[in-house]
Simulated assay, not measured.
Amino acid sequence: MGQAPSARPGPALAPGAAVSSADDALIERHLSYLAVQKHLAERTLELYGEAFNRLREALARDRLALTAVQPHHVRGWAARLHAGGLGPRSLALMLSAWRGLYRWLGREGLVALNPVDGLKAPKAARPLPKALSVDDAVALAQTSASPPPVPDSTSPRDQREAPWLAARDHCMVELLYGSGLRSAELLGLDVQAHPHAQGWVDAASGEAHVLGKGRKWRQVPVGTPALQALAAWLAVRGTVAAADETALFIGRLGARLTAAQLRNRLKQLTVRAGLPTHVHPHMLRHSFASHLLQSSSDLRGVQELLGHAHITTTQVYTRLDFQHLAKAYDAAHPRARRK
C-alpha cells in the first residue's frame, strides 16, 4: 500500500478503556461497504462480522486504537488464536477480513500501512468437497417429491400445507442438483424476470439466469425433471405467497426463503431419505459437478456451468472423479490391493 503522508497511527487507548465508539463506527462502515459496494453474500458478511469481533476483543485487551495497530500486534493475536484452537482455514478467513479492513482504512487516509500485509495463516490440508453418490442424490430428489406423513395431532392448517411444502422442496432439490446452483443463487431467484431481479428460470428455453459471485451473470441448463418440478411448484405457490412477493421460493409466512430455512429443510429431507450423511445445499452443487465430470470429462464446460472464475477451482472435482474410479478398481480388479 502506498504511503499516505497525512495518515498517522492513532493513539493507544487509555488503560482500562474499551474499544472506542469511533473504532466501532469505522468497522460498521466497512461492513456496510462490503454489503452495499462489494455485494458480499449474507453468510460471508456473518463470517467477516465474527472476524471483526475478534479484532475488537484484541484491541480492547491490548488497549489499542484501531489505527494504532502494527504488524507485531497482528502476529501476536494470530498466534494466540491459533494456539487457542482456531483452525488454519478460520484463521486465514479472519486475516483476510482484517487485511481488507486495513486496505479500506488506507484508502480513507486513516492508516499509513496495512499491518496484516504479508501475514499468512498456517497451511491447512485441503479436503475434497463432499459429494453424494448418484443413487443417494436420486433418492433425495425422490423423497423430496412426496409430503412427509402428517401426525394425527397436527392441526388442519398444517395438513393443508404439506402438499405445497413438498412441491417447493422438490423443485429446490432438482435445481440444486440438476443445475449446480449455489444456495444464494437459488434463493435469489424470482418468479419472473424484471429489471431488479437477481435470477429467474426461463421454462420455455430450459435455462436459469443467475447472478453469481462477483456479480457475474451466467446461464445454466435446467433439465426436464427440474422443469416438471418447477411447474408443479408454480401451480401451488400462489396459495401461500404474499400478494407482492417476487421470490420464487418462499417460506410459511409467504416471504422469500432464507438460507437457514433451506439448510433446515435439506436436513429434514436427509433424515427422511435415510441417507448416511447430512446434506447441505453446497453438497448438491458438488454432486452436480462430480457426476457431470464422471460422465463427460469436460472440465472446461463444468467450469462454465459452475461459474468458477479459475479452472483450478473446478479441477478439485477431478480428484473426486479419480477417487470414484479408484474405489471401483479396488472393488473389481483382480490385481487391486485389498485390505
Rank of each mutant, 00 (worst) to 15 (best):
Q3D: 05
A7E: 01
G10V: 04
P11F: 11
A17N: 10
A18L: 15
V19C: 07
A22L: 04
L26T: 04
L26A: 03
L31V: 07
A35D: 04
Q37G: 02
K38W: 03
H39N: 10
L45Q: 05
F52A: 11
R54Q: 14
R54T: 07
E57R: 15
L59P: 01
A60Y: 09
R61A: 13
L64F: 05
A65C: 10
L66A: 03
L66R: 11
H72V: 13
V74S: 06
R75N: 12
R75K: 06
G76N: 13
G76W: 06
L81A: 03
H82G: 12
H82V: 12
A83T: 03
G87P: 10
P88K: 14
R89V: 11
S90F: 11
M94D: 02
A97D: 02
R99K: 14
G100P: 03
R103L: 05
R107I: 12
V111I: 12
P115G: 06
A124W: 14
A124T: 12
P127S: 03
P127I: 13
K130D: 02
S133W: 02
A141S: 07
T143V: 08
A145H: 06
D152M: 08
R157Y: 03
R157V: 13
P163H: 06
H170P: 00
C171S: 08
L175D: 02
L176Y: 02
L176M: 11
L176F: 04
Y177K: 13
S179D: 05
R182T: 02
S183P: 12
L186F: 06
L187Q: 01
G188C: 06
G188E: 01
D190W: 08
P195Y: 10
A197E: 02
D202M: 11
S205M: 08
G212D: 00
R215E: 06
W217F: 05
W217D: 00
V220G: 00
P221Y: 07
A226Q: 05
L227R: 10
Q228K: 15
A231N: 07
A235G: 09
A235L: 10
V236C: 14
V236L: 15
A241F: 08
D244S: 10
L248W: 07
G251H: 13
R256L: 13
L257F: 08
T258F: 05
A259N: 12
K267W: 07
L269K: 14
L269F: 08
A273E: 00
G274S: 06
L275V: 04
H278Y: 11
H278E: 11
H278A: 09
H278S: 12
V279C: 12
P281R: 11
M283Y: 06
L284S: 01
L284K: 09
S287A: 09
S287N: 10
S295W: 12
S296N: 04
L306F: 00
H308R: 00
A309Y: 00
H310Q: 05
I311K: 01
V316L: 07
V316S: 00
Y317P: 09
Y317D: 00
D321A: 08
D321I: 14
F322R: 15
Q323A: 13
L325H: 08
A328P: 14
R338D: 05
